[in-house]
Design a protein around this nucleic acid. Structure first.
Lengths: 198, 198
DNA sequence: ACCTGAACACCGTTCAAGT
DNA sequence: ACCTGAACACCGTTCAAGT
């Protein structure tokens, strides 16, 4: 699994094949099948391995907002450590059962501390996780990772009659490139404010 | 492209191969290469085709919240119409340049109407889009689509000593299955409230 | 010049042939 | 019984051989 993860991290998911993994381990491809039933099991193993890296710092006494922030940063750090696996992790999260329990406990304990009802705590947890997944995916798939990545949108706007898309022009025209960067902490604060309002 | 989209919608992305597409069209596989340079171009064409289905209803006079809700529902409808392509759409959104401009205009016009500065309007748009992508992905990849899909989490909880994960037990124990469903509109309201707070 | 099938370099996995 | 390489049924794409 660690050899497979190295292949994925260094060269992307497409570089992980049973045959290349075998070559990296200097064994016959079919030998892998004595340890795992098929490639799907290999992928599930990678997801479990990576999610187990999630380290949630205990924050006794901290505000529920800071606990949620700690969770969010831990999750983002994990996502950035394995950008090539992220899509697979999100769509096959069920393979990370143990880490999912620990993550759920951490997040729901924080939201209970905010005084939310069970129904609203679960709702808030879903909103947070959906935002984290959406942000991490945008970040890892090239969109909005660093300044200048909004440039292609600006170039599109240049190639189109000037009276079209006025709001888009006003907003983007008022900002310089660093300001157009997607801001993880500011986005998280929007969601925290929304939870507080409830 | 429509034949390729039908294959993806009916049997998933893995069912789309140049050879199967050719078979569906009753032509030689290599004939496809006279219309498109490679499979990546085929996939980009699918993303553009699908994003062009996004229909954003004009809502003159409506509140900015209702305009954002209209956008969110249009996006979710699109995602649910092509669940098998969704991951590819999100990670290759740059292939949908025209629809991206129209979507950005709609969303930013609504957020300008909320009285946000350009910086905060763009930030809010990113939070909304990240949430929409995260939610749609959870919905389409089996997680949280319908009631009972939180059951595997409950079963995991059963197989573990009763003193572990107390918050998770309290929250889930207080809810019946329909209440555990992820709620799109309620989640969106959390984000709208967070934007209002700014 | 335009078109296309054979061929190449890959896949994941089955299965029979070895030990 | 355990192990593994040849073989099978696929891929995307190149390229030479046709028209």
């Amino acid at each position: 699994l660690t050899a497979a993860l190295r292949l994925v991290d260094e060269r992307g998911v497409d570089a992980l094949s049973m045959r290349r993994l075998a070559a990296a381990l200097d064994i016959d491809p079919m030998t892998i099948y004595r340890h795992l039933p098929d490639k799907a099991a290999l992928m599930r193993g990678l997801v479990a391995l990576v999610f187990d890296e999630l380290t949630l710092p205990p924050m006794p006494g901290a505000s529920w907002q800071d606990q949620v922030r700690a969770f969010a940063h831990a999750y983002r750090t994990l996502a950035r450590a394995h950008p090539h696996l992220l899509v697979y992790m999100i769509t096959h999260a069920e393979a990370a059962s143990n880490a999912a329990l620990a993550a759920g406990e951490y997040l729901l304990a924080a939201l209970e501390g905010a005084g939310l009802t069970p129904r609203r705590a679960l709702l808030a947890a879903d909103v947070i996780v959906d935002f984290l997944n959406g942000f991490a995916l945008a970040e890892s798939s090239g969109r909005l990772g660093q300044p200048g990545e909004r440039r292609e949108l600006l170039e599109l706007l240049h190639g189109v009659p000037a009276h079209q898309y006025p709001a888009l022009r006003r907003v983007l025209g008022a900002l310089d490139e660093p300001e157009m960067m997607s801001d993880f902490d500011a986005g998280l604060n929007v969601i925290l404010a929304g939870i507080e309002a409830a």
